[in-house]
Amino acid sequence: MSEASPVGTNAIDRIRDNPFYVLGLRPDATRQAIERQGTKLLGMLELELKSATSYPTPVGRAARTPEKVRAAMAELREPSRRLEHEIWARLEPEAMPAAPRDVAPIDDEIAPRAGQAADPWPDAFVALGWRAGR
């Protein structure tokens, strides 16, 4: 996925960019807490404070940007949309035990896992004369 996609190009973003996770709040947060937290995070990001630049989600840590924070606040102001986000934010942000991996690109091959024997042969093109060696 491209770095330039703050929201929504990927299914995983629905969880990763859930407004509650972005703001570091749980679904029972009050309206005022949401506004206060959003404004605070925007200020921290403006001051480039490291503690504000990322946040935990059930699918791994994600980068926090002012656009994400603003979008999150706008989403949660609308009760109907808030209700939808509450559903997706039910998991605890740190719920995932394993380190999340990025979703592999669509055309990745299904490589059989027979130990190292069937590992890729990255030098194939050079070894077979299709490309110059380094």
Binding site: A11, I12, I15, P58, V59, G60, L91, A95, M96, A98, P100, R101, V103, A104, P105, I106, D108
Partner: peptide, 8 residues
């Protein structure tokens, strides 16, 4: 969530 984080 688990499925989304799995290599496709």
């Amino acid at each position: 969530a688990a499925l989304l984080t799995k290599p496709i």
